[in-house]
Amino acid sequence: MSHTSLHHPSRASWRALALAICAMGVIVLASNILVQFPLNDWLTWGAFTYPAAFLVSELINRWFGPGLARRVAWAGFAVAIVASLLLAPARIALASACAFIAAQLLDIQVFDRLRHGSWWRAPAVATVLAAVLDTAVFWSLAFAGEDLPWLTWAAGDLSVKLAVGVGLLLPFRLLMRRHLALPA
């Protein structure tokens, strides 16, 4: 991929960016709804959907660079916050918004700094650090002071985010290769 393609996306690339923004919105909205449904005393359903947000931002970062990845994160943030405020409790929507944008911006920055190493290092390290930040911010803002087992939910949530994040390394690699094989 040329240096120019990182900063000047083609028409097909703009479609990819629009899909990424929609994906971010859907992922965050689904996670905000699913976090309200415990699977047991240490996990909610939202833990399974959220790590896909890191996959989206890391692919955009790899293909188009950190500037466009940040734009996708902010646009996805706007879509998700509006939809979440309509479909999820305000406390969850606002906690999610704070956690989402902090974690996405950290993910993008760490990924960009590590992008020139092994193909798996940047997404693995960025996802782990961003998942820890996201979990700490979200659960402390959304449920602190509530009479719910939110600390164990946070621990379970982080465990699943990390496991799913590692599991998403293979799709990351496959999608990276597919994108590189497409004509510009």
Rank of each mutant, 00 (worst) to 15 (best):
L59K: 08
A122L: 07
M176K: 08
L114G: 13
T127E: 03
P89T: 12
L168D: 04
H8M: 03
S57T: 14
W139R: 01
F64A: 07
K161L: 09
A124I: 03
Q104Y: 07
V110H: 09
A181D: 09
A12M: 09
S159K: 01
R173M: 12
I108S: 00
L86G: 04
D41L: 10
V160R: 01
A130T: 05
W150H: 10
G67K: 10
V35L: 02
A30K: 01
V26R: 00
F48A: 11
L17S: 05
F172K: 05
A122K: 07
F37L: 14
E146N: 15
D157G: 11
Q104F: 05
L43N: 00
T152A: 15
R177I: 13
R113W: 11
A93G: 10
K161V: 02
A122T: 09
S31W: 02
W42M: 12
L170T: 14
S57M: 01
Q104A: 14
N32F: 07
A102G: 04
R15D: 01
V160Y: 01
R178P: 01
R115K: 13
W120M: 05
A20C: 07
A83R: 03
L43D: 02
A144W: 07
A52I: 15
F172T: 07
R113S: 11
L105K: 00
L158P: 13
V137R: 01
L174R: 13
L6F: 14
F37A: 13
T49V: 15
A52C: 12
F100A: 05
V110K: 04
L162I: 14
R115F: 06
L170Y: 11
A102V: 12
Q104M: 13
L86M: 15
R62Y: 11
L55Y: 07
I92A: 08
L86E: 08
R113P: 03
M176N: 09
V28K: 00
A99S: 15
V35D: 01
V166Y: 05
L19W: 12
V28I: 11
L182A: 12
A20E: 05
L174H: 09
S13L: 00
P66V: 03
S118H: 15
R173F: 13
I108T: 08
W119Q: 07
P183T: 14
H3T: 14
A18M: 10
L55C: 07
A131Q: 03
V128F: 12
V28H: 12
W14M: 14
V164W: 06
F172W: 07
T135V: 10
P9C: 01
L168M: 13
S10K: 05
A69F: 09
H8P: 00
H179F: 14
L94Q: 02
L174Y: 04
S2D: 12
G117N: 02
L133Y: 05
A163R: 01
P149K: 11
V166M: 09
A95T: 11
A53T: 14
A18E: 02
G165P: 08
R71C: 11
T152R: 15
W153T: 04
F143M: 11
